[in-house]
Design a protein around this nucleic acid. Sequence first.
DNA 1: GTTCTTACA
DNA 2: TGTAAGGA
Length: 155
Amino acid sequence: MERATLREAANGKIFSTANLIFGIGQISKMTGVSTRQLRYWESKGYIEPKKRADEQAQRVYGYDTFLRVSGIKSMQDEGYTLAAAVERTAALMAEADGIRNFLLDAYHGIAEVDNQDMLDLGFLDAEHTQRLYARSKDHHVEYLVRPAGEEATGK
DNA sequence: GTTCTTACA
DNA sequence: TGTAAGGA
């Protein structure tokens, strides 16, 4: 069997959140948002229960909704109005999604360069003659460029 | 026991 | 927004 890639993991083939579903009471306890509020937020279109094949009345929520509710609640506690908290949460989640996708595109594995573990960021140039490596140290990023074809020790 | 909608404080 | 009612 081939080794699983980070992207496969991120796509949910390995660490799947698809089967994480919660009832309204669970979401309420996890986030500190009352069931009354959750139903109210739904009426305003801020959150939406999962569609269920079986036409049942009881709401079920996915993991993404848990994150959304959690974010809205946090920002509300910081003083944002509900509408503003909803907007900011949506923006942050979209930004996080963009970052995640970018990193998955850029990341080519771990490689040992000069006896140090570096992120392999793939070819630097269109001609594929140089390869870019990077690592993070003390909250800033260090880059290395090496001739391509020497990335033998990828882990 | 929990969740549903509706309605009222 | 919390709570009560009355049913699922």
